[in-house]
Design a protein around this nucleic acid. Sequence first.
DNA 1: GTTTTGAGTTACTAAAAGTAACTAATATAT
DNA 2: ATATATTAGTTACTTTTAGTAACTCAAAAC
Lengths: 138, 138
Amino acid sequence: MKVTNGETAQLGTIEKVVNHFSDNRPTKDCPVTDVLCRISDKWTMHAIISLGKAEKLRFTELKKKIEGISQRMLTVTLRTLEEDGFVTRTIYPQIPPRVEYALTPLGRSLVAQIMSLSNWASENMEEVFKARERFKLN
Amino acid sequence: MKVTNGETAQLGTIEKVVNHFSDNRPTKDCPVTDVLCRISDKWTMHAIISLGKAEKLRFTELKKKIEGISQRMLTVTLRTLEEDGFVTRTIYPQIPPRVEYALTPLGRSLVAQIMSLSNWASENMEEVFKARERFKLN
DNA sequence: GTTTTGAGTTACTAAAAGTAACTAATATAT
DNA sequence: ATATATTAGTTACTTTTAGTAACTCAAAAC
């Protein structure tokens, strides 16, 4: 990053992010950190991946797809995703209830990122498991 | 764990605990999920981003860069990253101690993924904040 | 009139994260 | 000779978050 006469140079996205993380600024003052912390959550990532594979899913369908999630954590996760604008929640006034969850355009743009990370995990898990074996022997 | 000058590092309690939980890892779960859960962690992502910026960093340097992290969480995070083969831990037998952390090739391939996610967060944070405002009004 | 259904709540327990003080071993300063 | 600074952690403790299981609502089917 080059600075001339007290003026900051135009930054590309990578430099902006790097800048955010290198600054000694409280977490609450860094919006990138804020958003990243919301995304970097186990159940959030799973919910987004599941919704990315289907057009829309009901609560119970999601619960079946996200192995190991509790009803409470699914509710909490979906509420947060809705709050952040990643997911829409459509309630059909029926008994028993029918609630459909679907990704927003913003959510769909995030899917690409998380799918990429998921694919990375799939491609590299063997090496991770080997590393764990090696670590155990020390 | 890499040790120079043929010196053997001693395992502290935290390291033993990490080992113990590694052995009791739920292997019945999907291995991709296993790896994804390890990566999708706030401090893990910050540590990888910091190490991706620099060639190598000492413990205290990392602590300064990862705003808000406690010494305990930095230790736990770095041990897990080491266990999974994402970082190397090089101990120089000096007093006061000198320990250098650096990404492995596996860790460097992960940096690209996490940087991409960070960039997404940077580009889309405004829309997320707008969504939160809209949600509050309901 | 009891059971079933879907999408949650609620109350409770277990686990993880955060906080602050403490340690080791030596070099340097007082 | 004693005190202080240094680095990379640990330990004990508190708070926050996640997980578990039972409960709810309202109608429709049995």
